[in-house]
């Protein structure tokens, strides 16, 4: 992969685990997947960010890695709220679920959501990124 040729400008990582946000940032940067990584430690914060920047196209992420199991508001709750955001936001963002959940129901539920384009099992590796970049 060409280190100077980023796949995405801005990638948001929504995960409550610090180690996963940390790892994601390292992997995404190392493999030149994203020019800028926007870590969000909760679904609420992620939604606030998107909502606040809904008019600011530059600030919106091109892709969102979304964890499922998070306290207070989980990945699916996030998707419910995300649905209400303006089309401008939804048109720009691609959502990839990134979870350690093994529940087949979770995978099905995620894949049936119109805004989710992929479901990945943690950990995030270089191989998996390749799949996202070239589906």
């Amino acid at each position: 992969m060409d280190s100077n040729n980023f796949n995405f400008e801005k990638v948001m990582v929504v995960d409550d685990a610090e180690i996963d946000r940390f790892l994601a940032k390292k992997v995404l940067t190392k493999h030149a997947f994203a020019k800028e990584v926007l870590p969000q430690d909760s679904a609420m914060n992620a939604l606030s960010y998107l909502s606040e920047n809904q008019e600011n196209k530059e600030a919106l992420p091109d892709l969102i890695f979304l964890d499922i199991n998070m306290p207070k508001m989980n990945g699916f709750d996030f998707l419910e709220e995300y649905k209400k955001l303006p089309e401008s936001v939804k048109k720009k963002c691609i959502i990839v679920m990134l979870s350690s959940s093994l529940l087949p129901e979770d995978r099905e539920l995620a894949m049936n959501n119109p805004y989710v384009c992929q479901f990945l099992n943690k950990p995030l590796t270089a191989d998996k990124l390749k799949d996202v970049a070239n589906p």
Partner: peptide, 22 residues
Amino acid sequence: VSHDLRAPLASVLGLLEYTMSE
């Protein structure tokens, strides 16, 4: 439990792989 057990494992695995690539 399996999730709670797996989640940290996945994190460790990720980090290990990353470290190995470095």
